[in-house]
Amino acid sequence: MSRVRRLLAPALLLAALIGIWELYVDLHGSTFSLILPAPHQVAEALYTDRGLLWSNFLVTAKEVLLGILLATLIGFVLAVAIHFSPLLRRAAYPLLVASQAVPVVTFAPVLAFWLGFGLLPKLVVIALVSFFSIVVTMTAGLAAVDPDLLKLMRTFDASRARTFWHVELPSALPGLLTGAKIAVAVSVIGAVFAEWNGSNSGLGYVILQSLPQLLSARGVAAVVILSLFAIGLFSTLALVERLALPWAYRSSGEPAR
């Protein structure tokens, strides 16, 4: 399929959804548009508030990027530790799952109390909501190594560390990237919640301020920017996967020759 035709389907779907949305709001009158602004109002807000949105986007973008980096680091270390220690796996896994059931908003105030109102508590919230997918996919990648390959390495007298370095770690890298791709979307939501506690900038802060002021178009404009940012991050990671791990892309993409 050509590039244009591949892009046509999602573009048409998006246009149709926006059209239905516009029609729906227009039919419900101007008061309703204070609750749910029409697409043209959002577009207007995107234009008139561009300075405000851009400066706050930079704040959130920095938080998200650093947060994902922190989540990847935590996820990587935990996955490796769990891989090497069945005891730790049994002990820590239930806690990891439980940590994902805790709504971040409930402990964001505590984090602000401990860590202040700067960048750090935001990074911690983002990392907390997004490290889990990385741990799970990377642990699965490490465990999925062909047992015959491990036997082969044993007949080659490979130490545990060298087997990890030459065989297990490279096998798990696609899992790490998959986890990071899932984490991207969650981390953006995490950033918004993080900014709802003890912050005075960022797109989450903009959303929090806009809604009670009935500037809902501005709030939705911030959401649009966050969505586009998430798509951009996801695509970047997909590109990294294609360039850095071409073998994984090949084996899942086209049939191998």
Binding site: D148, L149, T155, H166, L245, W247, A248
Partner: peptide, 11 residues
């Protein structure tokens, strides 16, 4: 050992 499948590392 030379395993049944070649098990070459794709990377």
């Amino acid at each position: 050992l030379m395993p049944q499948r070649d098990l070459l590392l794709p990377w």
